[in-house]
Design a protein around this nucleic acid. Structure first.
Lengths: 238, 238
DNA sequence: GCAATTGCGTGACCTACATCACATTTAAAA
DNA sequence: TTTTAAATGTGATGTAGGTCACGCAATTGC
């Protein structure tokens, strides 16, 4: 029986590897379980927090909101579930929402003319995903977002977010901070790309997200690293 | 006599190629002139707008501020001039400011262990530059910003910006928008990197910033494109 | 003006990674 | 369970672009 790598400890919404009593399930407003099949063994992975608790914890890491402010903030989100492989944003769409991942894994990616896929980002629990260019400018989407695994997300519309930012400066700060983090991450990935060879990028990724190794097919990891699947295969078999 | 490529027409702060009467100079609160030496000929490049006018135009493209709001906003900026080659942010610094380019060209870059330089961004008039990760998180700078040419900039401190964002939702919107644009640009550069070979990236850059060809040494362009200067040289001699 | 530095071009050679081709293993569908 | 499709491993071979080495041109400093 092979262990699944656990999520990094610093992840506020770390996925817990244990079964849950059904009575406990019943007490939760939100609870998503999905199963990972691995060598004929099923692992039940469950979140022990409601969506509200998860988002609250996430926001609290960045900015303190009053109980009232948070409740108002939270009331602008919808909760959705998606199946593995389901598309959330497709090239050419008008984009009105951004998505906060509660559970599972999304990917944002681009498909070029030769139908080759490039993954910009995996979105794990506690991360946000959208086509931010399309969302902000009103242009049609140029990148896609879909589900690598079954996923539970919260979504908020662009207009709701803008309204909230105008009402509550703390919320405005939160989103400014969040976008800034995204920018910094994009820059870091850029440097890693210019600077390091595929092997180093692979090791970097596995260090940051050991869970990915078992969670997503290798050809997706290759598409994230910007190498062919063959090269990736050779990388970790040597 | 060789012409200098002019800045793209959609650039709100396009550099004008003409001399200015000294009487006209005297009437301006801000006027920077610098000279580009090229085949023994000097071109005088001057901006016909004050710093205030330049920033106002820039902001107006994104969000309308009242006259009063803008004056308050502008009062939080300092104007500075730098010489070609001067450092603005160095690795290890604590970063408290971000910079709006009025005139000239900055670069933000990273130096790796083998003392190889990677340019993340050229900042032309109308663009912003800083180490945003360091600025926002309070960490020490990991990237550098310096002057490719003599430059005139406006700078605003992190605390002043935060205060303004809390006071004026329109200003908060402006900065949210701006960071978002930066993020989208970083993502676009990333895709261009994963997707296209050096030749295409070079052509893309020259299309977007024809002025760069004469403005900055080729090895800097190479460092931006992520290729060796030898490869870049071979690219446009074939 | 001359010296010193920095920038640029070009050949020879090397390497990381892509591509194609095919076998095999694993998971999904029926 | 059987069938089909998707994911993975591995060899052979091609190529974009790196590195080293050198010479010349253009700027900068004194």
């Amino acid at each position: 029986m092979q262990a699944i790598h656990s999520a990094p400890a610093n992840n506020a919404t770390a996925i817990l590897q244990q079964d849950i009593l059904s009575s406990e399930i019943a007490t939760r407003k939100f609870l998503s379980t999905f199963t990972v099949k691995k060598f004929d063994t099923y692992f039940h992975i469950a979140m022990h927090m409601t969506a509200e608790e998860t988002l609250k914890l996430h926001v609290a890491n960045i900015k303190t909101l009053t109980e009232e402010q948070f409740r108002h903030f939270f009331s602008h989100f919808d909760q959705l579930s998606f199946k593995k492989g389901q598309a959330i944003i497709s090239e050419g769409d008008l984009v009105s929402y951004e998505y906060f991942v509660l559970d599972g894994c999304l990917k944002s990616f681009y498909i070029n003319d030769e139908v080759k896929m490039f993954i910009l980002q995996f979105a794990m629990p506690g991360w946000w995903a959208s086509d931010y260019n399309a969302l902000y400018s009103g242009n049609r989407a140029t990148i896609n977002v879909d589900c690598v695994t079954n996923a539970a997300v919260l979504r908020i519309s662009n207009t709701a977010r803008e309204a909230l930012c105008n009402e509550i400066p703390e919320v405005a700060y939160f989103f400014r901070w969040r976008t800034n983090k995204g920018y910094a991450a994009a820059q870091k990935k850029m440097l890693s790309f210019m600077n390091k060879d595929a092997k180093h990028r692979y090791e970097e990724l596995m260090e940051q997200y050991p869970a990915l190794y078992n969670m997503v097919p290798k050809h997706l990891i290759a598409a994230y690293l910007g190498v062919s699947r063959e090269t990736l295969s050779r990388l970790y078999h040597s």
